[in-house]
C-alpha cells in the first residue's frame, strides 16, 4: 500500500467516516457505525477515493427514504446495527446483503458507476428485510 492510499485511509477513518456516521445518526436517530475492511482496499486508490461518494452517500440516500416516517426510523433503529463495506476487484464478485442487522456492501468501487449499488436497491433490500 502506497503513502497516498495510507493518507486517504487515515482521512477516511479520522474525518470522513465519523461525519458520515453522524449523518446516519441524524437520519435514523441512532448511531450506526461503518465497518470497512481496509485490507480489501489496500491497492485500489480509485476505490478509496470513491468510497465516500459511492458507498456512504448511497447508503445515506437509501436510509433517508426508509426513514421518511416514524415507522421506518423505528425499524432501522431496531434492525440495523452496522454497515460493512468491502472492496472487490471485479463487478462479478459484487454482493449486497442484509443479515443479522449488518448491511454488507461488497462493491467494485474502483469500477466507478459500474461497481456501486443504487440507493433504490439498498433501500428495497432494507425495506424488505427490516
Amino acid at each position: 500500500m502506497g503513502l497516498a492510499e495510507r493518507r486517504r485511509i487515515l482521512e477516511l477513518q479520522q474525518t470522513i467516516l465519523p461525519e458520515r456516521e453522524r449523518e446516519l445518526a441524524d437520519i435514523c436517530g441512532r448511531a450506526i457505525p461503518y465497518a470497512v475492511d481496509w485490507d480489501t482496499f489496500a491497492d485500489d486508490a480509485e476505490a478509496l477515493s470513491l468510497l465516500e461518494y459511492s458507498a456512504c452517500h448511497r447508503v445515506a440516500m437509501a436510509l433517508r427514504v426508509v426513514c421518511r416516517d416514524a415507522l421506518g426510523r423505528e425499524a432501522v433503529r431496531e434492525g440495523l446495527r452496522e454497515v460493512a463495506i468491502a472492496n472487490v476487484a471485479d463487478t462479478s464478485a459484487m454482493a449486497l446483503t442484509f443479515e443479522g442487522g449488518v448491511l454488507r456492501l461488497r462493491g467494485a468501487w474502483g469500477q466507478r458507476s459500474a461497481g456501486m449499488f443504487g440507493d433504490a436497491e439498498i433501500g428495497a433490500l432494507l425495506s424488505a428485510r427490516l
Binding site: 461518494y53 440516500m61 466507478r112 458507476s113
Partner: peptide
Amino acid sequence: PALPTAEYLALARARGGVR
C-alpha cells in the same frame, strides 16, 4: 472531484427526478 461530471450526471439521470 470524485466521479467525472458527465458520469455523475448520468447517475443523477438514472435516479430520476428531483431528490
